[in-house]
Computed example of a mutant assay.
Amino acid sequence: MTDISLDDWVAAVAAELGLDELEVDVEQVLDLASDAAHAVVRPAAPLTTFVAGFAAGQAGGKPDDVREAIDAASAFCVRVAEEA
């Protein structure tokens, strides 16, 4: 499975977890990971994306909830980087 695209990978993981209808903006998630990695340290990237995803799920899990959680987390990363 090494030649799989990121979109296909996300779809496969989502299906494995019973989330067949999940829509993921891969670029938005990767941008958040990049923001976190550069604002703090590289290991902050997966942790930040996990927390944003969890927050989106708690808010209802709709696409707008996901976008809002990612936008808020990205904005926080930018603030942290600017304050450093």
Rank of each mutant, 00 (worst) to 15 (best):
F50P: 01
L30A: 10
D65H: 10
D31F: 00
T2D: 11
E27S: 03
E23F: 13
W9M: 04
A56S: 07
A55L: 12
D7M: 00
D3N: 11
E16I: 06
D35S: 06
G57T: 04
V24S: 02
D8V: 10
P43R: 03
L19H: 13
S5F: 01
L17W: 12
A14N: 07
A37I: 08
V66Y: 10
A44V: 03
F54N: 03
E16D: 15
L19D: 10
V66P: 04
I4M: 09
A56I: 06
L19P: 10
A56Y: 08
D31M: 02
V29W: 15
D71S: 15
S74A: 14
V10I: 09
A11V: 14
V51Q: 00
D31K: 00
V66F: 13
A33T: 04
P63K: 03
A73H: 08
R67I: 13
A15P: 02
A39F: 02
A73P: 09
A37K: 05
A55R: 10
L30R: 13
V41L: 02
R67V: 14
A37S: 11
S74H: 10
G61Y: 08
G61A: 12
V24H: 01
V66K: 05
H38L: 03
K62M: 14
V66I: 10
A11I: 12
V24I: 09
L47N: 04
F50D: 00
A12R: 15
W9N: 04
A12T: 15
V40I: 12
L6R: 07
F54K: 13
V24D: 01
S5I: 00
I4S: 03
L6F: 08
S5T: 11
P46K: 02
C77H: 02
D3Y: 06
E21V: 07
E23L: 11
L6S: 05
L32T: 06
A36S: 01
R42N: 00
A73C: 12
E27K: 02
A15V: 06
L32Q: 02
E16A: 15
V24T: 11
E21Y: 05
P46Y: 05
